[in-house]
Amino acid sequence: MTEEIIIAGFGGQGVLSMGQILCYSGVMQNLEVSWMPSYGPEMRGGTANCTAIISDSEISSPVLHTFDTAIVLNQPSMDKFEDAVKPGGLLIYESNGMIRKPRRKDINICVINAYDESIKMKNTKVFNMIVIGGFLKIKPILDMEHVILGLKKVLPERYHHLIPLNEQAIRKGMDIIQTEHSLN
């Protein structure tokens, strides 16, 4: 199993930490992982992305140009990464603020309205955890037990009381993700 993921969106949406949580969860599950951010003169509100690779064998290149899964959280990211999904791969997009729908017909496409759900949960900070939940529903590569362990590693100790809320958000994401286009 090797899962090559690009996560992209606005700075401040928690794009980089989503990748870190997936990778740390992979470490907890005794898998090989690599996380590579786009770095540059970027700022809150600008675009941000990271590549996360989770595999049961040694990872060669940490830098990729095609992906098994693209998780895109805004329109510029959709424009940039829709074409980078491998044929037969998966595109997950967050529906808020998305102007045009994906065009590809040779990939699986799922949609998640994580932002509205985070408002219902009265905490927009769990937005990215809802998206992670949606991803893990479609690609169950990590066990919830290891994701919680990963969260504990990524979150500073003073935020550990928020872990149950994050777990709730992950489960909510699993419930609300919808398949828009399926190859099967």
Partner: peptide, 10 residues
């Protein structure tokens, strides 16, 4: 280099 410095691995 910028890749090795910025990337995370176990």
């Amino acid at each position: 280099d910028g890749i090795i410095g910025q990337m995370m691995e176990k």
